[in-house]
């Protein structure tokens, strides 16, 4: 009874669409029927009944193939406006038998293929998605589809939950490093250096300490201005460009600061954001909704 109940539920939630191969089956059935009826060929009758029964049994088999799948969105990474991100979709097969030839249709035209999901197994799919603007977005119109087993019926099943996320401003503008280089006079001449640190690829070539390199150690000079423990202050209203450009610039600097573990604060017209008080994500959310 439980199985029957499950099947009825699956039947209700799964849509069936005829494909062009179903037309082939209908034409074939009609042709075989005529051949069998007109000439009383029992072999044709047998073929006719097999084609009919197989096409008929393809329905429940295809239904269970797709219907036993449970799909849910999982927390995904950060999304930025106009940059491709990945939405994580978890598929779990509730049945002991494998599900075949599953495609996830998302973002209106994109298709992600999952050829096989074994019984009681779980798969995580990364669906590419590019938000068109910053702010809240919801990701729906996503459905599972399968033509298993005979390609005569296309089974589709909408994913009940939808993914709601936030797209941060597109991180673009002048890099923090270039910005600081431009404004290095603010922090003094770099004639003297305080010590050495490991070269991580982001420093200027002129900062490489060649004496260390000669000894086999890739080191760069550490200047006193860098060791100064201070907070970078970004003031929204003093920045140039449109609102979107300024938010994009702030988003880029926020990410760079996060990368280099730099403390910073952002002065927005009505809010003062500090990396020591708010998390990076909270700051980014504010920028997204600003």
């Amino acid at each position: 009874m439980k199985s029957l109940h499950t099947y009825i539920q699956i039947h209700k939630t799964t849509k069936r669409h005829a494909t062009r191969f179903s037309i082939v089956v209908v034409v074939l059935l009609f042709g075989l029927f005529m051949e069998a009826y007109m000439h009383d060929f029992n072999l044709v009758y047998i073929t006719l009944f097999f084609v009919f029964s197989l096409a008929f049994s393809a329905g429940p088999i295809g239904l269970l193939n797709l219907g036993n799948l449970e799909a849910a969105f999982k927390p995904s990474g950060r999304f930025f406006a106009l940059q491709e991100g990945k939405i994580v979709l978890q598929l779990h097969n509730n049945s002991s038998t494998s599900s075949w030839s599953i495609t996830v249709h998302h973002n209106k035209k994109e298709v992600t293929l999952l050829p096989l999901l074994k019984g009681h197994a779980t798969a995580l799919l990364q669906l590419p998605f590019t938000p068109q603007k910053r702010g809240m977005f919801s990701y729906d119109a996503c459905y599972l589809q399968s033509k298993y087993p005979l390609s005569t019926v296309r089974f589709t099943r909408e994913i009940p939950s939808r993914y709601e996320g936030i797209a941060y401003p597109e991180p673009k503008g002048v890099s923090l490093h270039a910005f600081m280089q431009e404004n290095e006079t603010y922090y003094g001449e770099e004639k003297e250096f305080d010590g050495l640190r490991v070269y991580d690829g982001s420093q200027r070539l002129s900062h490489i300490h060649w004496a260390s390199v000669a000894k086999g150690e890739m080191a760069v000079k550490r200047f006193s201005k860098e060791t100064r423990t201070r907070t970078l202050d970004f003031v929204f209203e003093r920045m140039e460009g449109t609102v979107e450009e300024r938010l994009s610039q702030l988003c880029l600097w926020t990410l760079e600061c996060e990368k280099h573990h730099l403390s910073f604060s952002i002065h927005m017209p009505h809010k003062h954001l500090t990396s020591t008080k708010e998390s990076i994500d909270e700051i980014l959310v504010y920028l997204a909704n600003a």
Binding site: F49, S53, L54
Partner: peptide, 24 residues
């Protein structure tokens, strides 16, 4: 799938209405 179909084929073969045509 074949086994799902087999009983249907048997039932249809026995009971599907026939017309008495001679073999062509």
């Amino acid at each position: 799938m074949f086994m799902y179909s087999l009983p249907w084929v048997v039932v249809l073969f026995i009971f599907f209405p026939r017309i008495s045509f001679e073999h062509a």
